[in-house]
């Protein structure tokens, strides 16, 4: 189970199994504006820093969160 999926599940208070691999801001019904704030906060907590504007704009689906977490870890 990817950490990005856990972040989404916690943010929207749903089981990890309900977060499909193709989950996105447009197709996951539970992905609302308040949940989005929790997603950004969780990513920032994970990375230990604030996201810059360009990074915030990339957060639109599960894959983009995985990329953000992995990219930052690899840097």
């Amino acid at each position: 189970m990817s950490h990005a999926r856990e972040i989404l599940a916690r943010a929207f208070d749903i089981p990890c199994a309900d977060v499909p691999q193709e989950a996105s801001i447009e197709n996951l019904a539970a992905w609302d504006s308040l949940g989005h704030l929790r997603v950004i906060a969780a990513i920032e907590e994970e990375l230990g820093r604030h996201l810059d504007t360009d990074e915030v704009l990339t957060v639109i689906d599960l894959a983009s969160i995985e990329q953000l977490l992995n990219g930052s870890r690899a840097a």
Binding site: I25, E26, W31, S33, H36, L37, I40, T53, V56, L57, I60
Partner: peptide
Amino acid sequence: AANLPAIYNYRR
């Protein structure tokens, strides 16, 4: 840029 709810709405 700090208006995350607005960014969410545009992206959604």
